[in-house]
Design a protein around this nucleic acid. Structure first.
Lengths: 339, 339
DNA sequence: CCCTGGCACTCTGCCACCGTGAGTGCCAAG
DNA sequence: CTTGGCACTCACGGTGGCAGAGTGCCAGGG
């Protein structure tokens, strides 16, 4: 009984603080949350919760606010995932259905997510490594330069200009195209890299040098920029919570411009099949120590296509945000899977 | 003589204010700027300048700050374009040369520009309409779906999935590819649209329906998204000048997330061959009334490929910013032109 | 006619002060 | 274990005084 009420008090504190952004005191708490006990009792509980590190007071004789640890407990044990309304679901679906190509899908999702959560949204472009090769095209720009275009089944298109030492004619280009497609088409990226490496050895001698350069470029495109890109939206929402960040806003913005940082945050959630939450210092990024990240993977199967999520103040509506992230990820996954 | 000194005073005010962000008074001005006259004289000049609307005082008994009109005069008549150092030029060049494809060029430029100017940078993707078709590729996804890939000489790649009512085999696809390339390759986009529209009429009857759908899609891709995309970087720099914006920062960020707004700002500078400056309300965007925009077109010839520029506080180092924008635009233009 | 020094005046910014109110911790009684 | 009471502690907001910077105006000098 006692334990249970304490948790109830913690939940009440988190919920109130999320709404008001003001340290919450014992009196208000006892009044507004029908806890059935007096403020004095609540004070005792608060004292215990503070002892255990779940809440803290900004200064003596102020109310309490949750700590990282407090939010963590709240997310883990005290809150579910608030389901979205039917209207919201329909809105998501219809907004995403208007997309004309992969780029558009990503851009629409990220805007949508930012709007739904009123926070900064991040969407990773579908990773090459978990999709498969649909087609490889070689276009002659001039005798010494080829343009290599790689198309994946998720609709992603990678392109590279390749300089070749000795000129080739269209016939050779056709053969090369045939060889590359024959050996790589339909393969998942991870396997394709091996197949590509073996390719030159088994080919006609006069084609080998060209094949070597081409496959090198293919491998480079596959590996190097593997999952480099992310889309970002809703940075204006950061100012909404500017009270929380004070002067650190600049560093947060700077961190968010670093693709590497974003990938670390979002990419790591990719493989877990569920929505993950990182609170405060759990983000492992110093500039984001006063923010939380709610992220998940999207796309079917064990290896997801990519990750998406939002970055917001620790003082965040976790149930609502988690629901929005999960829903958008689900729809995007379906959209790309069916394509 | 008198006129001339007044302008000198205005220049001094702008320069000091840009550095200090504090209203500048007559005494400091006379001391630091070797004007050869006493503070009292400067005061008279300031009084006149205020009368004419070039400067204003935030409150009685404070120093003066420039008005929109004052900055305008400064930009038009009192400042040149401060040339970049040799080292800076080399840095620009070497940084841009590392780009692997068009996307990379744009992303690198925008980051570079943000870094050089310490402001928010905007770069428009090369417009389709002023480049020409290098190659059109058609890939069969399944009998009823084709992927159309359009490659321009600036390296831009557009892709569209096309649903076709009646299945086609590879032979037909080959013919279609040949027809499209034969009639469109090498054409500038503006002309290509006409050629594409005429194409179906002159083709073999059995190909006509397919050609019609395909050309429709091509036209759509060319027209609709013609110059839709821009890249943005350096939003964190806005916080650097947060004093200037106070609480309007949020609205500025919101405006910057609107592609339409950015295109209006940057795109309009595309056609002028020179660096243009819009100060305060001249931007015609309400949220940006306390900012200035320095922009120019890049790419050779009369019709530029796109625009690029920066958005910053009115209190901005105009000569330096203009120089940086001009230099980056020049290098990017050369890079894309040579490609 | 223009420049200059002097002078009175007007503000903002800063600091110190103080009362109020919210909130706490502790304690003794139920 | 809960509750009411009580003394204590601070942040916050408003007030008042002081210093400093800047202005406008004016009369005198080149």
């Amino acid at each position: 009984m006692l334990e249970e009420r304490r948790l109830e008090v913690l939940r009440a504190i988190v919920e109130d603080f999320v709404l008001s952004n003001e340290p919450v005191g014992s009196k208000m708490l006892a009044e507004r949350h029908a806890l059935g006990v007096s403020p004095a009792t609540v004070r005792n509980d608060m004292s215990a919760l503070e002892e255990e590190g779940y809440i803290t007071q900004p200064h003596t004789s102020a109310g309490r606010i949750p700590t990282d640890k407090g939010y963590r407990l709240f997310v883990d044990r005290l809150s579910g995932v608030k389901p979205l309304s039917r209207a919201e679901r329909r809105a998501i679906q219809s907004f995403l259905e208007g997309a004309v190509d992969l780029d558009d899908v990503v851009r629409r999702s990220v805007r949508l997510l930012a709007q739904l959560t009123r926070q900064v949204a991040v969407v990773q472009y579908p990773s090459l490594s978990s999709s498969s090769v649909r087609h490889i095209e070689i276009v002659t720009l001039n005798p010494n330069r080829l343009l290599l275009v790689l198309i994946t089944d998720t609709g992603r298109v990678e392109q590279r200009v390749v300089e070749i030492p000795t000129p080739v004619d269209d016939g050779v280009v056709g053969e090369l195209r045939g060889l590359l497609n024959g050996s790589l088409r339909g393969r998942r990226m991870a396997d394709a890299t091996e197949a590509a490496a073996d390719l030159p050895d088994s080919a006609r001698p006069d084609l080998r040098p060209h094949l070597t350069t081409l496959t090198t470029v293919v491998l480079e495109a596959l590996l190097e920029r593997q999952e480099e890109r992310v889309a970002l939206a809703g940075t204006a929402n950061l100012t909404r919570a500017s009270v929380d960040f004070a002067d650190s806003l600049r560093f947060i913005l700077e961190a968010l411009e670093e693709q590497v940082v974003l990938l670390k945050l979002i990419g790591s959630a990719r493989e877990t099949g569920t929505v993950t939450v990182r609170i405060g210092r759990e983000t492992d990024v110093d500039a984001l120590r006063s923010t939380s990240v709610v992220a998940t993977g999207y796309g079917l199967g064990p290896a997801a296509l990519g990750g998406m999520g939002v970055v917001g103040p620790m003082r965040m509506d976790y149930p609502g945000t988690m629901a929005a992230v999960r829903a958008v990820a689900k729809y995007v996954g379906e959209l790309l899977g069916a394509d």
